[in-house]
Simulated scan of single mutants.
Amino acid sequence: MIPCSNNSAACIRTDSRRSRPAAVSPPPSAYLTHHGIQPPRRTRQEFQEGSPQRAEVSITGYRAVVDPAALGLHVHAVIRLRTTHAQLSRALDLASRTPEIASTLRVTGEDCLILDVYCPQAGRLEEVVDALARYGPVTTSLVLRAYPPKPLTDAGGNAGTRRGHLDRAR
């Protein structure tokens, strides 16, 4: 983490657990530049004021990726819930209040919600599944391995290239 000036509001947030200021890491490009490494040109341009790409890029934030196993969460599952429109808001409320549910997707098709769940043991997963089942049928799949996510790209500019690539792979 890059040290921040105590007077810089942009570099300080309140740590709610300790009720005192805590430093926040700056964007990766600033970190690289601070340590004498030039970030890729495109990244550098996206963060420069007035850059043409800046208006087109929508970076919503940065996040730390924590290994769930390091937190004792050894059971990873994906739960699909099929519910009624009348029960949907209650199911979403339960999902938001359940700490083991890391993400919730509302989807089309037979299922209504897809939930990404991390639990310390199978018994806790059973409790989460049972609680969700009050709102409709659930299907639970254990995750054997999670692969790294791919970065988002400009699908519009590369659609033709990708289609050609996929055609050649057949």
Rank of each mutant, 00 (worst) to 15 (best):
M1S: 14
I2C: 08
P3T: 15
P3E: 15
S5W: 12
S5F: 06
S5P: 01
N7S: 13
S8W: 10
A9W: 10
C11L: 08
R17K: 13
R18E: 14
R18I: 00
S19L: 11
P21R: 06
A23G: 04
P26H: 06
P26G: 06
P27I: 04
P28T: 10
A30C: 01
L32T: 10
L32A: 15
T33I: 12
T33G: 02
H34S: 14
H34T: 11
H34F: 12
H35T: 10
I37Y: 12
P39W: 03
P39Y: 11
P40R: 05
R41I: 08
R41E: 15
R41K: 12
R41D: 15
R42K: 09
T43N: 04
R44M: 01
R44K: 07
E46T: 05
G50T: 13
Q53H: 11
A55Y: 08
A55E: 15
S58M: 11
S58W: 13
T60K: 09
T60M: 09
T60P: 00
Y62C: 08
R63P: 00
A64R: 07
V65N: 08
V66G: 07
V66R: 14
P68W: 05
A70M: 06
G72V: 06
L73D: 03
H74S: 12
A77M: 02
A77H: 04
V78I: 15
V78P: 00
I79S: 03
I79C: 03
L81K: 03
R82K: 12
T83H: 07
T83A: 11
Q87N: 12
Q87L: 03
L88G: 06
S89H: 05
R90M: 04
R90C: 05
L92A: 13
D93G: 02
A95T: 07
A95W: 01
S96W: 04
S96M: 13
T104G: 02
T104S: 08
T104K: 04
L105M: 14
V107M: 04
G109M: 05
E110Q: 14
D111E: 14
C112M: 02
I114D: 10
D116W: 06
V117S: 00
Y118E: 12
Y118A: 07
C119T: 11
Q121G: 02
Q121L: 04
A122P: 03
L125W: 02
E126G: 06
V128P: 00
V128G: 07
V129E: 14
A131W: 01
A131L: 01
G136P: 03
G136L: 02
V138P: 00
T140G: 02
V143E: 15
L144S: 15
L144Y: 11
R145Y: 13
P148T: 15
P148Q: 09
K150D: 12
K150N: 14
L152T: 04
D154K: 04
N158I: 11
A159Y: 13
G160V: 07
G160P: 03
T161K: 08
T161W: 09
G164I: 06
H165S: 11
H165F: 08
L166R: 07
R168C: 01
A169G: 06
A169T: 03
